[in-house]
Simulated scan of single mutants.
Amino acid sequence: MKYEIKGETLPVVIMKLDRGESIFTESGGMGWMSEDIEMSTNMEGGLFGGIARKLSGESLFMTTYKSKKDNATIAFPSSLPGKILPMELGSGQSVICQKKTFLCAERNVKLEMHFRKKIGAGIFGGEGFILQRITGPGLAFMEIDGEVVEYDLAPGEVMKVDTGHVAMFEPTVEFDIEMVKGFKNMFFGGEGLFLAKLRGPGRIWLQTMPIMNLAREIIPFVPTGGRD
């Protein structure tokens, strides 16, 4: 499989599939494709698998696209302003990501829900109790809101992050939530009551403009429907 990512603000990944190669995504993720690609939609893993994906932020149904000849074209556009990040995962290699980060992947890649071990991280994490685990082998593509910034945390090194800015992290990274200290910081600091605490070792991927932050900035300018 060959691919290229085009665009800056609203990018798209355009792939060239040879005969027999396949890619899968959640229902509705495909932008356009040539006529030589066969589309198959189903509730992978049965009802339980569909419900599990729904809880982790994906759709009940997954769609697989399989090429019937060499050099067939298929494209998956981003749904929001940001970046498309390709990730080549080795056999058994995983990343943990927030809801809606997964865009598409080769058929060998496994997508499943991931439970946070600590209840506090689930209740106050800003994205719900369930995350997504994406496991290789294979190539996967992720959607990042805004720009992406990567850090490699050393053992014991901590990065405190506004919860919506956490896009992905390696399974070796410990994820927890802590309350902002100080009354004035909590109520007048403008950062919310909780911060994500990421402890190394491992790599983390942070996003600069979470969709909730973007919506908050846009709402004051949205017409309410009244007439002057």
Score class of each variant (00 low, 15 high):
Trp32Pro: 00
Met15Pro: 00
Glu44Ile: 15
Val161Gln: 03
Ile74Phe: 00
Val158Leu: 12
Phe24Leu: 12
Thr208Ala: 04
Gly138Cys: 11
Ile130Arg: 01
Glu174Ser: 12
Ser27Trp: 13
Gly226Cys: 09
Val166Cys: 07
Phe183His: 11
Glu174Met: 11
Met179Asn: 07
Ile134Glu: 08
Lys83Phe: 07
Arg19Thr: 10
Pro220Val: 09
Gly136Arg: 05
Val222Pro: 04
Ile134Val: 10
Thr41Ile: 10
Thr41Leu: 09
Met142Glu: 00
Glu170Cys: 07
Gly189Tyr: 08
Asp228Ser: 12
Val166Gly: 04
Phe129Tyr: 13
Gly189Trp: 08
Val161Gly: 06
Met159Val: 15
Val166Trp: 08
Thr9Glu: 03
Lys117Met: 13
His114Cys: 13
Gly92Val: 13
Ile96Cys: 08
Glu26Lys: 10
Phe61His: 05
Met87Tyr: 15
Arg216Cys: 08
Ile51Ser: 04
Phe183Pro: 14
Leu47Glu: 09
Gly125Asn: 11
Ser40Ile: 00
Leu89Asp: 01
Gly128Thr: 03
Asp145Leu: 03
Ser22Tyr: 01
Glu143Gln: 15
Thr163Gly: 01
Asn108Val: 06
Val12Ser: 06
Glu106Phe: 09
Gly20His: 14
Leu214Cys: 10
Ala167His: 03
Gly200Gln: 03
Phe48Thr: 11
Ile211Cys: 02
Gln132Pro: 02
Ile219Ala: 14
Glu88Thr: 14
Pro210Cys: 12
Ile96Asn: 01
Glu44His: 13
Gly28Arg: 11
Ala167Leu: 10
His165Asp: 08
Met142Arg: 01
Leu89Val: 14
Lys197Asn: 11
Ser27Lys: 14
Ser22Gln: 13
Glu88Ala: 04
Leu10Asn: 13
Asp36Phe: 10
Phe169Leu: 11
Cys97Val: 08
Glu38Pro: 02
Leu103Phe: 10
Ile211Leu: 09
Gly82Thr: 14
Val12Trp: 00
Ser59Asp: 08
His165Glu: 07
Met142Phe: 15
Gly46Leu: 14
Thr208Phe: 02
Lys83Met: 12
Gln98Leu: 04
Ala72Cys: 04
Val148Leu: 09
Gly57Leu: 08
Phe221Gln: 14
Lys16Leu: 04
Asp70Trp: 05
Ile219Ser: 11
Gly189Val: 01
Gly28Met: 04
Phe175Val: 08
Val95Cys: 02
Leu111Glu: 04
Ile123His: 05
Ala75Arg: 02
Met43Gln: 14
Ile84Met: 04
Leu60Gly: 02
Ser34Gln: 05
Lys100Ile: 07
Gly50Tyr: 14
Glu143Met: 12
Met87Phe: 13
Ala196Leu: 04
Val148His: 00
Gly146Arg: 06
